[in-house]
């Protein structure tokens, strides 16, 4: 009849009997270890990264067929704004660049110019198998195949095409990386600019961009 067995106390999920008083050794109720002082830089970086991760502005720019996924992602069905991700109209007002699908050499030049105009910190999310290894454009005469030789990619989302849920998962990964301070592709780009420039100039034959597109 549902009567508890006499003398048997039900347990909480943590293994603590119901009604028992908290005990100093209960690891579920008290923090373990000793306090570790954070330096001022670490505290500022933690707060800074937290704020940066919560407000991503995706540049309104679609390079390939993957940009068709950005419509449902931004509107009510998959609503990316509930994660703090919103659109940015220009490179100057954006922090995330989505390379959505195949990237032709002609578009690469525009992408480089847009990327360099974005203020730091900035991140690149590469979408689809075309950006990873060429995908179905593996033998195309005008489509680059390995995106991270030309731009620092923080998150790859594979698939052809990835669904908006996959893109949201990629954004979640990016946010976690930003919070941990690991999404540093833009620093890598500045430190290794010569290497990136050499790769870019190798495919863009009529190079007419400035030294750096401020």
């Amino acid at each position: 009849m549902g009567v508890e067995e006499k003398g048997k106390v039900p347990l909480l999920p943590s293994g603590v009997p119901v009604g028992s008083k908290p005990h100093a050794t209960d690891s579920t109720l008290f923090a373990q270890g000793r306090p570790k002082p954070l330096s001022l830089d670490e505290s500022v970086a933690f707060i800074k990264n937290w704020f940066r991760a919560q407000s991503l502005n995706v540049m309104a720019y679609g390079t390939g067929c993957g940009s068709i996924e950005l419509g449902p992602l931004g509107t009510s069905r998959f609503d990316m704004e509930r994660f703090g991700i919103t659109g940015g109209p220009t490179p100057r007002q954006s922090s995330v660049l989505i390379i959505s699908g195949y990237l032709s050499v002609k578009t690469l030049k525009r992408v480089i110019r847009s990327y360099e105009q974005m203020p730091n910190p900035r991140w690149v999310v590469a979408l689809g198998s075309c950006t990873i290894n060429g995908g179905m454009y593996w033998d195309s005469y005008s489509t680059i195949k390995i995106l991270d030789q030309y731009l620092p990619v923080d998150v790859y989302v594979n698939g052809c095409m990835p669904r908006p849920e996959a893109l949201i998962a990629g954004f979640k990964d990016l946010m976690d990386m930003i919070k941990r301070g690991e999404a540093n592709g833009y620093i890598e780009y500045q430190n290794n600019l010569d290497w990136y420039r050499a790769n870019q100039r190798k495919v863009i034959k009529d190079w007419n961009l400035p030294e750096y597109s401020w």
Partner: peptide
């Protein structure tokens, strides 16, 4: 025009 050879030479394989 050999597209695959051009793509391999210009863009490489991962």
């Amino acid at each position: 025009f050999d597209t695959a050879a051009f793509a391999e030479e210009a863009f490489g394989f991962r």
